[in-house]
Nucleic acid binder design. Structure first.
Lengths: 187, 187, 187, 187
DNA sequence: TATGAATGAGTCTTCATTCAT
DNA sequence: GATGAATGAAGACTCATTCAT
């Protein structure tokens, strides 16, 4: 019976996964454009040849890494949705979750990578949109499509704001704006 | 009297400017990471050596190109501010200007390039922030700092939204949200 | 009773043959130097490993493919010989057969591949020579060794001529030359 | 004043020539398909990068090497033509020149390389045809186009014959055949 | 000072071959 | 015996950067 190391070495599924995971990590750390086969192989702990055996081109590997990240992002949406469902989708709760999210540097980077890559990659666009689409759909139940959509747009703005500002936005600002957007009198 | 070519050769400032301009154009067209000396030299119509003569390293040149773009963006702010001063900073006018801005693909690309580069480049951050800082300062005169800031954040959200969505946001949505944000009753 | 796949797996001879045949086809299509294990396996419809199982090295496989082609070429000689025996080895008949042969692109390619490979491969030389040797032996019966040999040489010239000229040689030219060579008065 | 080595290092024309020459030599020695940048650089005594600086792709370099060879071949035609003009284009003289040519292994290889490459390269075809075209044109003056052409074809046959046969063709055979072809009674 | 030739480090990619299963 | 995963050597090519001229 083969030992763990040997079995792992002959487990293509696992190997592929390790490589994609390494690529995803590196995309977050150094950016999509800096990716190289060598880098990925080193991170994944596999020989150089393995990265080209499992992916026809670096572009393919990059794409899969990005997709991997997109799925991660999606998983976080589910968490947010669950929290909102449980605690109520009030501006206060939303704000708390946003502030929490902003603190997760890894998540912020992943999101940034996916969104910026999506601008040029039609395949990714759909995945990248899911975050705002789903949040917006959830909020729409209570506040109507337009206000929900506007709130999602505002939240995106908050995320990008935080990326180039040293001082975080005051939570009250976020909360007030969300309240105004979601509860604006009908026009 | 020296002819144009000779004079040009004698005007290092002009040459430097041409190179930076070419770099800026290319950043918008192909992205920061795809920049090469050769590409820039070709675009600027200068010999390869000129790009290394005026800039110690490609990174420096890249940085200057980005800075050049940031200044361009800033120039656009002035235009917006002037329009707002003249026509009034109402949600309707703001929306119109935003929709106009979204239609300028070149400007959108320049902004994207500056912002994403700014995330990792402390020097650029300050320049990249200016857009929202100045807009926010202008709006603050009438609506107070908090609401002004929130409006600027929302507008950033609108920009990023447009980059990964095929359908543009309805102008009414933008206008309503801005109205809600700017005119929210004090808390 | 084993099904086809199983039987096939049990018939190493057949498998070997399929691989060699695939190699031969590919030599004709892409050239000796472009051959790869993967290519051959795909064409033969066998797993990659089979190509290395049956042939110690790619060179061996290549050599066998070439040999296979040489045998094919030889088979064509028999056809020609039979036709000559039946219809008489006259310049007219020879010319007709040559023109026919020139039209068979696949055969021309196979011949080219064998001959050019034979230049450097002593093993193949003997096989590659057989074409002219046999034709020459056949013609010698009627016209003597020297004239027969010269005719075979001329025919080789015709083949190579056609490979780099766009316009084919006029059949009369071929026929006249063969007549002159074969019926030249003794010296 | 720069010493010879330094000047040579800054003489792009010369460097290009050295690289092409090295490529041509190697084509003759190892074949077109075995060419590599490294090989050529080593042979030319230049760093690896030089081969890619002067030639956009290996294919270009290969093509130039082949062209270089073709020109060499053409130079030999001139020699032959001059000899024929001086000594008379008789079968005996032609045979002597052919036998001489066969003995020049380098020339034979060069011709082989050019011809086989020309089969697939339209650009080279024209160059490769020149040998027979010119010889044929020269002989046509005295013997008419058809016989001249047939003689050139026969001579090509002699060349290829020699490439895969260990024993050279007897000179008398060549001479007799040429005599028969060139002096055949009109039909 | 201005130019572009020169260099080699580093990139992606392909494959023969080995060998665990 | 049959399969295909694994590996790394080697190839083509790109470029930042240096530096002779």
């Amino acid at each position: 019976m083969p030992d763990a190391a040997a079995r792992r070495r002959r487990d293509p599924e696992a190997r592929r996964r390790e490589i994609v995971t390494a690529a995803a990590e590196l995309i977050v750390e150094v950016g999509v454009d800096a990716l190289t086969h060598r880098m990925i192989a080193a991170r994944a702990g596999v020989p150089l040849g393995a990265t080209t055996q499992y992916f026809a081109t670096l572009d393919d590997l990059r794409a899969d890494g990005l997709r991997h990240l997109a799925v991660e992002v999606e998983a976080r949406i589910d968490g947010v949705r669950a929290a909102l469902a449980e605690r109520g989708a009030t501006p206060a709760v939303l704000t708390e979750l946003i502030v929490q999210g902003l603190a997760d540097a890894r998540a912020m980077e992943a999101d940034r990578a996916v969104v910026t890559a999506a601008i040029d990659d039609p395949q990714l666009r759909e995945l990248a949109r899911r975050w705002s689409t789903q949040l917006s759909a959830f909020l729409a139940e209570e506040h109507g499509a337009e206000r929900a959509s506007a709130a999602a747009v505002f939240i995106d703005g908050v995320l990008w704001h935080s990326r180039i500002h040293d001082e975080p936005l005051p939570p009250e600002l976020i909360e007030h704006a969300l309240a105004a957007i979601l509860h604006a009198p009908a026009t």
